[in-house]
Design a protein around this nucleic acid. Structure first.
Lengths: 226, 226
DNA sequence: CGGAGCTTTGACACGACTCAACGTGGGTGG
DNA sequence: CCACCCACGTTGAGTCGTGTCAAAGCTCCG
C-alpha cells in the first residue's frame, strides 16, 4: 500500500474532487485514492514529504512501547499532514476511509507553512485541554462538533441547524483520540442518542440534532443524563 | 505588574544573565525581572509581542468557563512564549518564580520562528500522549524528567548521574499541567521519595537520584510500589 | 448461511477524585 | 520576639467515574 505513494507527483497539482467517477482511479495503480487503513508513513522512520488531504480522513498517532495508542489528530479535507522539523516522523499516519492525498512541495510558501503549523499547534492545545480537564461526555461531544466542522454538511432536516457527516473513525479510534476506552465512547454515544441530541444511522452516518446544546455539553456548561 | 512589560525594548538585545547584582533591577521599574505570579499576558486579549525566557519559569495555560485550568507548557530559559497566529492570545502566561524576560522582535528570522513552532508542536503532542494514555505515576515521572532537562544541573551527588533542579511549579501547578489533582501529585511524589528515586529538600529543591529508572517509569516500562 | 469485525450492554474492579483534617514554613504586625 | 495567619503540602477515608472483562447483537459480505 505504501508504494502507491511512491510516485504521487504524476498527478497534476490541485486535482480537486472531480465530478468524474472517482472509483475509476481506485483501480488504477497510479491513482492516489487510498483504501481504509493504509499506512501513509510511520513514526520513527525517515521523514516523508508533506501531503494535503483532498478527500477522506487521515489519523495521525503515536504509540507507546507497550502498545498504548494516542491519536494526535483526525485530518479532513484541505488540511496538511507530515509537517514538522527534524529528520524523522514524530507520529504515524493512516487513512480511516477511502482517502485521496495530494503531494505538497517541500518548498511551500513560508507563510502557508507558518499558518499550517500554527493551526496544528492550536488544535493540539485544544486536545490537551480536552484530555487534561474534560469528562468523558464532554470529550465525545467536543469530538462530534470537531468532526462536524471538518466533514459536515447541513442536514436535510433543518431543525435548529442540524448537521450530518460521515463518521470515519471507529469507536476504538475515537477512544484512542479522546483518551478513553472503546466501551466508554460507546456508552456516551448511546446517552447522546437517548437525549435526542444526535442520531446515528447505518453505523457511520451521524447527525447532530441540536448542535447548540451539544456545544454546551462540550464546554461543560450543561451535563448529560444517564 | 503588567506595566512592567510596557517598555521592555528599553533593554538592549540579549541582556544575558549578567554577573552584576540582578536584584538591582528588581527594584528598578525598567528592569524586566518579574516577581512570581506575574501575569505576562491573558488568554483572549489582543495578541502581545513575543518573549524569550532568559531566567526563571513561565506557565502558559488555558481556562474553561467553569474555572478548570490546564497548563499547556512550562517554559524554561532559552525558550519562547507568545508565538502563534491570529489576533488574540490563545492562552495566558504567568511567571512561577522570579523571571527575566527578553523581548523578541516580531520579524524574527523565519527559520528560527519555524523551528520554535515545530518544537512547541512536538512538546504539545508529547503532552497529548501523556494526558491521553499515561497513569498518574507515569505522568509525574515524565514531568520530573522534563523539568530536569529544562532547569537541571548535575548534582554534587554523582551517583548514577543524579540531577538537581529548582521546582518552580507548586503541586497545584503540576496537577493542572498533568491533568491530575493536587493530592494525586503529592501522593505520587511521596511514593517516588519512598522508592528512593527522588529527593526533595526545602520544598522546592528536587534531585533525581536514579534518572534511568525514573525514565523507565515515565515510559511505562516499570511500575511503582505503594 | 456463516464468519469477521465492530458495537452494545452488563457486572465488577480499581485508580483517581473529593472532602476533610492536620502539618509546615515564611511573613507580618502587635 | 512571639503569636498569628495564610498558602502550601501531606495524609486518610470514602465515593465515583472510567476501565476491565465477558457475552451477546448487529451488519456487511463472501
Amino acid at each position: 500500500m505504501l508504494q502507491m505513494l511512491a510516485n504521487p507527483a504524476a498527478q497534476p497539482a490541485f486535482p480537486r474532487v472531480s465530478s468524474t467517477t472517482p472509483e475509476m482511479r481506485a483501480v488504477s495503480l497510479a491513482g492516489p485514492l487510498l483504501p481504509p487503513r493504509t499506512v501513509v508513513f510511520l513514526e520513527g522512520l525517515t521523514r516523508c514529504p508533506q501531503y494535503r488531504v483532498v478527500d477522506g480522513c487521515v489519523a495521525t498517532a503515536q504509540t507507546l512501547s507497550d502498545g498504548r495508542r494516542q491519536i494526535i489528530d483526525l485530518v479532513g479535507p484541505g488540511r496538511l499532514i507530515g509537517l514538522g522539523f527534524g529528520d524523522q516522523n514524530r507520529y504515524s499516519a493512516e487513512t480511516l476511509g477511502f482517502t485521496r492525498l495530494e503531494l505538497v512541495s517541500d518548498s511551500m510558501a513560508q507563510g502557508e507553512r507558518d499558518q499550517a503549523l500554527s493551526e496544528m499547534l492550536a488544535r493540539s492545545q485544544s486536545l490537551v485541554m480536552l484530555l487534561g480537564r474534560k469528562t468523558a461526555p464532554e470529550r465525545v461531544a467536543s469530538a462530534l462538533i470537531d468532526l462536524s466542522r471538518q466533514f459536515g454538511r447541513p442536514a436535510r432536516d433543518k431543525r435548529r441547524g442540524a448537521i450530518t457527516f460521515h463518521l470515519y473513525p471507529t469507536r476504538g479510534d475515537l477512544a484512542d483520540w479522546l483518551g478513553l476506552t472503546l466501551e466508554t465512547v460507546s456508552r456516551c454515544l448511546t446517552r447522546l442518542k437517548k437525549a435526542a441530541l444526535i442520531d446515528i444511522r447505518q453505523g457511520d452516518l451521524v447527525t447532530l440534532l441540536d448542535p447548540q446544546q451539544l456545544a454546551g455539553i462540550a464546554a461543560g456548561d450543561r451535563s448529560l443524563s444517564h
